[in-house]
């Protein structure tokens, strides 16, 4: 179980790409509108028991960036980690 205000982080790697992506959700900014959950093409995100966005399936992420761009609370950030960097 995660605390409501905590930041959630997960790393995902696209099969076709060497680059990893780091998904970060600022749960203290998230208001649980569900836009990211409803429109994610790969169902990477879900609303948890606090009605806040959480990462349930990071491996499926295709790095399309829909959630990041459409989050009205700017709570989701995708950070590209290029190969060779930590």
């Amino acid at each position: 179980m995660t605390i409501s205000g905590e930041s959630l982080k997960a790393t995902s790697q696209k099969k076709s790409s060497k680059n990893k992506i780091f998904i970060e959700i600022r749960r203290d900014w998230c208001k649980g509108c569900g836009i990211c959950v409803a429109f994610c093409p790969k169902k990477v995100l879900e609303l948890d028991e606090h009605e806040k966005s959480s990462i349930s399936n990071p491996e499926a992420c295709t790095q399309c960036g829909f959630c990041e761009l459409h989050c009205p609370d700017m709570a989701i950030e995708l950070i590209l980690i290029q190969e060779g960097t930590k």
């Binding site: 208001k31 649980g32 509108c33 569900g34 836009i35 761009l69 459409h70 989050c71 009205p72 609370d73 700017m74």
Partner: peptide
């Protein structure tokens, strides 16, 4: 409010 479109415009 949750889901307000104005947040997306700011983003």
């Amino acid at each position: 409010c949750p889901g307000c479109g104005h947040g997306i415009v700011m983003n």
